[in-house]
């Protein structure tokens, strides 16, 4: 059974260790802007919401890519960007309805969460277990996926 990230906003204290760990893993720098996981801060409610790619089945980024640069890692199920193939056209960034694939002006390519090949660094970095890597069934992703389905351009005739 493939695993998914489980993001629990109730446990998140907004320390942003995950952003630093992610950017370090991806970019070699401690720079939240280069992180594929983002913490959204809602001040009045004192609430922090971690957010990243759901590795959705529909993978709009993957279908939209004109040169087959986004492929599925069969071991982890992650949709991964092959930087050598990516031409940097950014069509995937406007196609992804979650806003979780981003253009990196330094490299001229796009980046997204790739689950670090099965050892997600954000999980290791999180001190409160707000981010865990668990069997896919246990996550709340099904709701996200339902929401994603609303964005599908096709609907099956019932």
């Amino acid at each position: 059974m493939q695993k998914s990230l489980y993001l629990d906003a109730d446990k998140c204290t907004g320390c942003k260790q995950c952003e630093l760990a992610c950017s370090f893993e991806r970019d070699g720098s401690f720079n939240p802007i280069k992180s594929s996981i983002q913490i959204f801060t809602f001040h009045e409610a004192g609430r922090f919401v971690p957010y990243t790619c759901t590795q959705c089945d529909d993978a709009w980024c993957m279908t939209a890519c004109p040169v087959d640069a986004i492929t599925i890692n069969t071991a982890t199920g992650a949709k991964e960007v092959n930087e050598a193939t990516c031409v940097g056209c950014k069509v995937c960034t406007i196609a992804c309805p979650f806003g979780t694939i981003n253009y990196n002006t330094d490299t001229g390519k796009v980046t997204k969460c790739d689950l670090c090949g099965g050892d997600p660094q954000c999980v290791t970095a999180c001190p409160t277990d707000a981010i865990t890597y668990v069997e896919a069934d246990a996550t709340g992703f099904s709701r996200m996926k339902e929401w994603a389905a609303k964005t599908d351009n096709a609907q099956s005739a019932a």
């Binding site: 089945d57 529909d58 279908t63 599925i72 069969t74 389905a149 599908d152 609907q155 099956s156």
Partner: peptide, 16 residues
């Protein structure tokens, strides 16, 4: 989030 009727799983090519 509204109930989504039969969500179609897009028949995408799982080229690996």
């Amino acid at each position: 989030v509204e109930e989504v009727k039969d969500s179609i799983q897009t028949a995408m090519n799982e080229v690996t």
